[in-house]
């Protein structure tokens, strides 16, 4: 059943791995359609688990998850065609060229080969790679080039909800800047909802309309970056985060 304006709706979501590891301890938030939301938190805070649950890859143990009006996990097959997901450190098929990596995913989302080619062409544009580079094998790419192709692969499919897990993690300054630029331009032009995780405070501040601060599986605060800084009496988001989670542990 289609829901109202929320692209993502989580209520009291709990996820436990094994018997002891409580990855999420009752997470609740909503992401309106068309918004760019950032999930901010340190390593092990529960960012990736949250994104994987929304991406239909992991089942939550309790609570309520709704994506694009469909309840998970029951209606996951209705969700998969409308979302796209860029995992952290997402790789490419190294024996295929960049173009073939794009075309493979385009074929999954398209009805005809012609449509897939058009989608992959869009991917090439989004990646910003030259005609020569896009036809090189992915094994010959630098980390930054590979990440641009992987990001383009996630953005080109015309998803209503784009999930990006640490899109710039491990990249140098230039590559990270280039990735941020691609995300910014895409969000402006597509109107898709973007939910991205990061532990880079500056990145989130630059890209996101609204931020969810998460720590040890619980949401600590939620609001616009300026609002969070004001609430914590901090000069930047990094300082605000530290103050809101109760100092450096």
């Amino acid at each position: 059943m289609a829901g109202d304006g929320a692209a993502v709706r989580l209520r009291d979501v709990v996820k436990v791995f094994g018997k002891k590891v409580r990855a999420l301890r009752g997470v609740s938030f909503e992401v309106p359609r068309g918004a760019i939301y950032g999930i901010l938190g340190p390593n092990g805070a529960g960012k990736t688990t949250t994104l994987r649950i929304i991406a239909t890859l992991v089942r939550h143990d309790s609570g309520y998850v709704e994506v694009l009006g469909h309840r998970l996990p029951d209606e996951r097959n209705l969700v998969r065609g409308r979302i796209s997901y860029l995992p952290e450190d997402a790789g490419l098929y190294h024996r295929l060229t960049g173009w073939e990596n794009l075309l493979y995913f385009a074929m999954i989302y398209s009805d005809t080969l012609e449509e897939a080619r058009r989608m992959a062409e869009l991917g090439v544009k989004l990646s910003g790679l030259s005609e020569r580079d896009i036809h090189r094998k992915a094994s010959e790419y630098s980390k930054g080039m590979a990440r641009r192709v992987a990001l383009a692969r996630a953005l080109m499919v015309g998803a209503e909800l784009v999930l990006l897990d640490e899109p710039t993690s491990g990249l140098d300054v230039f590559s990270a800047y280039s990735i941020r630029k691609i995300i910014k331009n895409f969000a402006k032009s597509s109107g898709a909802t973007v939910l991205m995780s990061s532990h880079n405070m500056l990145e989130v501040e630059e890209l996101c309309d609204r931020v969810i601060l998460i720590n040890k599986g619980s949401i600590v605060a939620e609001g616009e970056p300026a609002e969070l800084k004001e609430r914590a009496g901090a000069a930047n988001l990094e300082e605000a985060f530290i103050k809101l989670v109760g100092g450096v542990s």
Binding site: A55, T56, L57, N77, R80, G81, I83, S84, Y85, L86, P87, D89, A90, G91, L92, Y93, H94, F105, I108, Y109, A150, R153, A154, L163
Partner: peptide, 13 residues
């Protein structure tokens, strides 16, 4: 291992 599976599993395939 090459981190290509996770992205594929989130597609409608």
């Amino acid at each position: 291992e090459r981190k290509t599976f996770e992205a594929l599993l989130a597609t409608p395939v």
